[in-house]
């Protein structure tokens, strides 16, 4: 990664939800701020800016990453997915639909990060058992639901994704 001085503001070229983007970002700008305030992808939320709450989780090259702990410039050349990419067209993805059916969200502020973590989990481990799902969820804080409906929604989504088309 090139060395930058603080007054430079070079373009960061990366793929966001399948589309090439190249916003400018000073070296110290966080990826979360770039996504939200420069690009306008406000579906990714910021809850703590120190990597604990998990609200800002996005996928970087398929892996869940805290966007508040990553500099925008580090996204150079990466493939980034955010919650805005989960639904294809007007239909909710099986994971999103399961969250709605199971009342797995109330205020919805932490939800984007949780969805991105679970989406990455099921992509790599479609058979993930409840313990694995809980382990993945333990990196996220939700203040509204008490978590039980989130676990139920995750299990339902896993079953649906498994039983559905392979590329779901």
């Amino acid at each position: 990664m090139p060395r930058l001085t603080k007054d430079e503001k070079p373009a960061v070229r990366f793929t966001l939800n399948g589309r090439a983007v190249s916003p400018e970002a000073p070296p110290r700008m966080l990826l979360s701020d770039l996504l939200r305030h420069e690009i306008g992808a406000t579906g990714t939320h910021v809850g703590c800016e120190h990597g604990v709450c998990g609200a800002c989780t996005v996928q970087v090259d398929g892996a869940p990453v805290r966007a508040c702990l990553m500099l925008a410039q580090q996204a150079q050349g990466c493939d980034i997915r955010t919650v805005e990419a989960l639904a294809e067209g007007p239909e909710l993805s099986p994971l999103q639909a399961a969250f709605r059916e199971h009342f797995a969200l109330q205020c919805g502020f932490c939800t984007a990060g949780i969805l991105m973590t679970l989406d990455a989990l099921f992509a790599s481990q479609p058979e993930a058992d409840e313990a694995t799902i809980r382990e993945a969820l333990s990196g996220h804080l939700c203040r509204c639901t008490g978590y039980a409906p989130i676990v139920q929604a995750a299990l339902a989504a896993r079953n649906r994704i498994k039983g559905g088309p392979i590329d779901a």
Binding site: G43, V83, L86, R100, L105, G108, F109, T111, A112, L115
Partner: peptide, 9 residues
């Protein structure tokens, strides 16, 4: 919920 699970809150 449709908006909230899609990042459109």
């Amino acid at each position: 919920d449709a908006a909230l699970v899609s990042g459109r809150g």
